[in-house]
Amino acid sequence: MQLKEIFTKRKKYATIPNENSKIDVPQGLMQKCKNCNKIYYRKEMKKSLNVCPNCGYHHPLSAWERIESLFDEDTFKEWDANITSSNPLNFPEYEEKVLKDCEKTGLNEGVVTGKGMINGQETAFAVMDSYFRMGSMGSVVGEKIARSVENARKESLPFIIFTASGGARMQEGILSLMQMAKTSVAIKRFSDDGGLMISVMTHPTTGGVSASFASIGDYNFAEPGALIGFAGRKVIEQTIREKLPKDFQTSEFLMEHGQLDKIIHRHEMKNLLTTILEMHQKEVN
């Protein structure tokens, strides 16, 4: 034995990862609040719709969690679930990325559309999912939203959208940008026919989504503490060469600058939407 070996502690055995050992430790039983670091049972957090019981921080909801939280049981009918992304620009690695997120989320794209009842009030609906490619908008997201708005117009239903998006999807280039146009034209037709549109911006709603349908509801709402804005914070800081305040581009910041109608706590959402839908009910003769 050499002298230096006396001072190094040698492992006498190797650990072989075992599938059973992974199952033994329950994954995700607990959840830590991103804001206050307090630890909760995941069940408890779920019951609270991912709002921290301690500090009120709104953690993201998946599209289906959101739908379940708002719609009356068994009233939801999904539209166009079978549309999925192609790779129009033959962008390297794009298809793989989309497929991976399909598996991760169980969705075919970053938005779920359909119609259903909120406390007995029927409405058309689009919910974006930030877990799917950051909720970015490509051809499919634009197409599904435009179609659901058209359906709402034809069926004389209100249209509610929950946005959650990092903006346009780079890999579909100009086609992504043009989805801002497509959805806007659809919404204009819907609006001119007297349709009610409610936009609820959730964390995050930025870039092309913020600069199109998210901002043109008859009512523009947001959840507390959501990041909402056109340009990214870093880009702005580099451009104007100054540090931005911590609350820059939050719901509260937008509210203060007159850009929002109201900030709505997730627990109040269903009741408030119900009231608004009731107040806009068209008289049927």
């Binding site: 998210a214 043109i216 702005i236």
Partner: peptide, 17 residues
Amino acid sequence: AYPGRAAEERGQSEAIA
């Protein structure tokens, strides 16, 4: 569109939308 603080405060997104 200009990525600036004032632009955001005055509603760059809304203006474009």
